[in-house]
Amino acid sequence: MGKRMTLGSFSFDAVIYILLTAMMFAFLYPLYYIGIISVSDGISVMRGDVKWFPVGWNWEAYRTVLANPLVLTSYGNTLLYTGLGTFVNVVATALCAYPLSRSRLYGRKVFTVLIIITMLVHGGMIPTYIVVNSLGLLNSIWAIIIPPAINVWYMIIMRTFFQNIPNEIHESAFMDGANDLVILWRLVLPLSLPVIATMVMFYAVWHWNSFFPATIYLHENKLYPVQVILRSMVIDGSVQADSSRDLTTIVTSMKYAMIMITILPIICVYPFIQKYFVKGAMVGSLKG
């Protein structure tokens, strides 16, 4: 920085810094607030004493939440659904995107249109439930993993990316005796790592946050993902005006402890994967 700052640019920078700090505060404070409530004493929380620092520090809320055996099993389930689900997603999406990216596929346009229609016109909950039920997937992990195996939108992003791989590479691979599977596995996928990484990210976050299919398709609570447990504590346990059961509502600090437990892994991982999210937003943007 050889140049001296003019007053104008200095004040401009100052305003920007102040604005950004204010924004950062606005984003971080709610998170921080959940954190301090979860370790504060319930009565102080109700009196509204907790604003900046925890009052009456204790881990009671966490102890109570973690004493619920379902919290840990559901955590394991979420990891399983996210891991296996994302794997199935990426494999299925790639297997669908690859043929659609090849111009020599017979009826490519028709298939593409048919697939896109499913994106625009959705069957709705009841028909989907009937299909899942008839396939005997109810109350099994597959009800969570198979129905959302391919997200059409992500598949199109992937297809667009595959299309940008020069055709000459395919031709020369054919000359060397490779078939489509080999080309996909040995050439296309290694060349498409950015888009694969993005897909993994998108799908994984989707699985992590998903609760609705689990509440509809799963019967046994030992199969529930952690989001279902969270929802049952935070939403169903909240005070309603019409309720005569207010006495038995769940204590605020317990709800907040549960929220912390659920989001902590994502918070820890996020700073490291955040740059892929930024990249991912650009991947698949229209390039012809």
């Binding site: 009841i126 439930y129 009937i130 039920n133 509809i216 279902v228 929802r231 049952s232 939403i235 169903d236």
Partner: peptide, 20 residues
């Protein structure tokens, strides 16, 4: 006993609507 932890209203409605 099969006990649904959350979102019971929608679950029940789906089950009734699909007659299962």
């Amino acid at each position: 006993l099969e006990l649904a932890a959350t979102n019971y209203a929608q679950r029940a409605q789906t089950i009734v609507a699909t007659n299962s």
